[in-house]
Design a protein around this nucleic acid. Structure first.
Lengths: 221, 221
DNA sequence: TTGATTTCTTGACGGCCGTCAATTTTTTAA
DNA sequence: TTAAAAAATTGACGGCCGTCAAGAAATCAA
């Protein structure tokens, strides 16, 4: 079994050498979760940085009215717990394993020491946060100003682009996709059917979508 | 005139001593903008960190359909240009002075050097980003899942809480408030009238709002 | 495989809120 | 102060999309 199983694949530790990775490994705690299991909940004290070393984690929030919002779908190598950097901060989001998942955690104090010792780590974390901020800004703008149809069209073309193929399997159930896009499963069904009737996409078995005309899809309003 | 006029009040430079502030001052460029003037636009190369030293800056984004979204209302001491930390990143947001405003800018390369030299700076920037992420996460959840009425009620009570008073002047025109909350000026007018009819608030001259029952206001759905 | 459970789809209905337009109020500038 | 411009209010209307419900399809467990 690899010693640095989780630590060595994480982008934020990229520049570090072997002995430093050993140090980190010694203060990291490993956890395993089954699909569907809760990794952290809103009332947990927020005192750890989480690193997803294998699997996928849904991170979502509850609104005042009880509806939930999927914020991130963390992949292997991604981190969560940005607010873990401050004192007296409480978590407002929930984490749930989407598939069997391995997570490493580092206590806030330890991570703060690490950043003091190896400044490259904080620069790397800054990059992660910057990208996440940019993404969230776009998402906020999108949900606040665009129709569900436009948001779904965007999601489909972006997913296709990131996978570099026109035919792909939706990585989420419709219910999760709905809470991500700020809509309902019913509406997603209807919109996909409509896209298909317009010839813009083709729906195949097992959540597989084929995009026929990405340009036209994006013109949907 | 104070030498460190802009640098010394910025939280991210807090721990630094006089000689270090001198260094920073020497690489900072100062700008002044009139109310309504554009500070940066979407196609500007994103190669500077902006520091608002006096005044207020509206930061907003354009959606694909042309509608705009107000993301931040930067106050004195706040920064913008998080993505300035990466290479090859293009700006997607616009900045506009809301009142006469002073801004300092630091070139990306200089700022990266500063962070290398003084690690406390990157820790401070991390704190700023963390808070902004938390705020954006809540905003995304709110616009995606709650009604306009609930969002407006939230905005009013939060503004009152942050100002520590029940009577305050709206810091934005209704049009800007609308693009912040993801709605229209007309709807805001109607909702405020409705709140007043319910006895929850009182509207006074000059955009002044008095909150009569914050608890009941938050129960609005 | 087979039944049980979850997920998805489709229809009907209604409310929230965006749009357009006209009037009133406030702000701005000379 | 006064006229012009900008902002805000109010009404009418309609469409998007959320909700509820029922049936179909897919997934899962044994």
């Amino acid at each position: 079994m690899a010693i640095h199983e989780c630590v060595q694949l994480v982008p934020i530790f990229q520049e570090l050498a072997e002995p430093q990775l050993d140090t980190i490994e010694s203060i990291v705690r490993h956890h395993h979760y089954q699909a569907g299991e809760t990794i952290f909940s809103a009332d947990d004290p927020l005192d750890q940085l989480m690193i997803v070393s294998a699997g996928q984690v849904k991170v979502y929030q509850l609104a005042a009215n009880g509806r939930e919002q999927l914020l991130y779908l963390l992949q292997s190598g991604e981190i969560d717990g940005e607010a873990a950097l401050f004192e007296n901060q409480r978590r407002t989001s929930f984490g749930e394993a989407l598939v069997p998942t391995d997570v490493c955690s580092i206590r806030r104090e330890d991570f703060q020491n690490l950043m003091q010792q190896y400044p490259s780590i904080s620069i790397n974390v800054l990059n992660v946060f910057g990208k996440r901020l940019t993404q969230l800004e776009r998402q906020t703008t999108s949900t606040a100003t665009e129709s569900v149809e436009a948001r779904l069209a965007n999601y489909l073309t972006e997913t296709a682009a990131s996978l570099n193929t026109n035919t792909f399997k939706l990585p989420l159930k419709k219910k999760d996709l709905a809470t991500f896009l700020g809509t309902t499963p019913e509406t997603i069904s209807r919109k996909l059917t409509r896209f298909e009737q317009l010839g813009l996409i083709t729906q195949k078995a097992g959540k597989v979508i084929q995009i026929n005309d990405a340009d036209q899809l994006l013109l949907t309003e």
